[in-house]
Amino acid sequence: MDHAEDHYYVPHESHWPIVGSAGLLFLMIGVSVWLNGADAGFWIMMTGVAIVIFMLIGWFGQVIGESEGGRYNAQVDMSFRMGMFWFIFSEVMFFSAFFGALFYARNMAVPWLGGESNNFFTNLLIWGDFESTWPTNGPGNLGGEFEVMGPFGLPLINTAILLTSSVTVTIAHHALIHGQRNLLKVFLAATFILGFIFVFLQAEEYIEAYQHMNLTLSSGIYGSTFFMLTGFHGMHVTIGAIMLTIIWLRVMKGHFTADRHFAFEATAWYWHFVDVVWVGLYVFVYWM
């Protein structure tokens, strides 16, 4: 096939997607079997994880090779950009489900259990001694008394870290555009290091919550929303930091030019996205 610049690059065939599907098959069956109580599930799951990682390395490796080989014209670049944008939009909607659960529980479910609206008898007859407050582990006092994770201390430090990392990645981007490769390397490294520090501190926070505050996933609706929101966010920060690390390694190898660096920008967008989610978390989960 003719791969001139004015032709949209259509790869001829690829075995990576079917490898990915095989990986997902093992992964999903493994997790399910494991959750159902069979230890073999763990190993099936790990097999799936290994296949998926193998697929990701192979697939991305191929795409990076094609990109560096100059096979992508501006239109292909635009497809990747739009694809990334809509992927991030789908992630926003995923987090929306959990934020929605938080708002619904705080503003509706918990007040109703406390007898608000037309739920006087629900409260009186089923949960007679329950008063609606937030945070709460519900009328059943699930998980026992717990302490609340306040907005100061680690969460505030983490906010500063993540906001700083958003600045450093922007400085790195400008350095890339202006051809200042050394500045780029330093600030990109700073970004992913800040990212990993955030993940480390978040883990510390979880350990503190579990060991000293009796705040767990089982601490009613507060524990559920707290850990699911911060947990999925932390997972995304981890993925983002790994992406940044890979971009950094590519920078070290001399990849990217001032006007062609889609992977860098996609990663930066993703990083800003996890940053924005964190601001939402900080305000609605830790602070208000």
């Binding site: 659960a101 479910a109 582990n137 519900g138 059943g140 009613g220 559920s224």
Partner: peptide
């Protein structure tokens, strides 16, 4: 499987949610 109570009234959640 993990003890959350999104849809469990005893924990402050709500099946209607």
């Amino acid at each position: 499987f993990f003890g959350t109570s999104f849809f469990l009234a005893a924990g402050g959640g709500d099946p209607v949610m």
